[in-house]
């Protein structure tokens, strides 16, 4: 049964956790028979701390759920295939998916990360759902990162329809042994009070909780960035920079979430928090010891 925990800011708390849990997993791990051949475990190092603008916020940014198929792929093949789908999956020469690739390669040494970008901008969830199934059949990914909701909210697609589409697609992916990460709606101050936008966000969060899949709550992350900038956090108030920071953070959250989802089940990474609008926290200088150690899944 998947555990849905809360990882707010994984940051450096993850460093010791990952390293020690990997060692513990190999040496003392439950179910590890001395006679059993050692599994080819890729060396995992702590992910780099989030950059300053991505640290903070009092609300949860990432809901953690394990990504067993990503972990299995890395164990067996040292390769993970990631299908990025939905609106605006990339902007600058590969966009945030290339950043995820780079970050994951830093964390899982020797791993080959294959990113398959199949974003169609402006596409509604119903059409994306059909393409996801076809792309899974053709590309055989271990993980689907699905940016969903923004275009449906902008087009005022009835919420029930979007919910049914997202739920059925997530279930289909789980049945086909593909992990899912949902990347939620974007934050823009102008739509902050929009009830349709709000209900779409809540619906996605609800679906993710119900189906035990990971969701990156991009809205809250970007909201914090905006608040930090407005409070004079040192990051220009320019809207372009803000959006750019949003995508940078999205890549960092996803990379960390994937690492935790694949290797950190059972770990309770200490979140880094701060009230919205507060100064972003500085990255910790040293890795924190884990709260508890579990064998690697």
């Amino acid at each position: 049964m998947a555990r849905t925990g809360q990882v707010k800011k994984v940051g450096t708390a993850l460093a010791g956790v990952l390293t020690i849990s990997l060692i513990a997993g190999v040496v003392f791990g439950e179910g590890t028979s001395p006679a059993a051949p050692a599994a080819p475990i890729p060396p995992v190092v702590a992910p780099a701390p989030f950059s300053p603008e991505c640290q903070g916020g009092s609300t949860e940014i990432v809901t953690e759920s394990p990504l067993p198929h990503v972990a299995a792929a890395l164990m067996k093949r040292r390769t993970v295939r990631i299908l990025a789908i939905g609106n605006s999956t990339g902007r600058r020469q590969g966009g945030f998916t290339r950043q995820i690739e780079r970050l994951l390669k830093q964390v899982v040494k020797g791993a080959d990360v294959v990113i398959i970008n199949r974003g169609v901008s402006g596409e509604l969830a119903a059409n994306a759902s059909l393409r996801i199934k076809n792309e899974v059949a053709m590309s055989n990914p271990d993980l689907v990162i699905w940016q969903v909701g923004t275009d449906d909210a902008l087009a005022f697609v009835p919420l029930d329809e979007v919910r049914e589409t997202v739920e059925s697609t997530v279930r289909w992916l789980k049945e086909h042994n593909v992990d899912v990460v949902l990347a939620g709606l974007q934050y823009v101050e102008r739509v902050a009070q929009d009830d349709n936008y709000y209900r779409t966000r809540e619906m996605l969060r609800d679906v993710a909780a119900k189906e035990h899949v990971m969701i990156i709550r991009r809205y809250e992350a970007m909201q914090f960035i905006a608040a930090a900038q407005d409070a004079g956090g040192g990051y220009g108030p320019d809207e372009f920079e803000r959006t750019e920071a949003g995508y940078n953070c999205l890549a960092q959250y996803l990379a960390s979430a994937i690492t935790v989802g694949a290797f950190g089940k059972g770990m309770s990474a200490r979140p880094l928090r701060g009230p919205p609008g507060s100064q972003p926290q500085q990255p910790p200088q040293q890795a924190q010891p884990p709260q508890q150690q579990r064998p690697m899944q």
Binding site: S88, R91, R92, S121, L154, V191, F240
Partner: peptide, 22 residues
Amino acid sequence: ILDNPLLLEWHNAAAVFYDPIF
């Protein structure tokens, strides 16, 4: 006009505004 930069991201237009050279 709407003071809504989300629309700059619509329909793959983001790259035009954020990465205009390429």
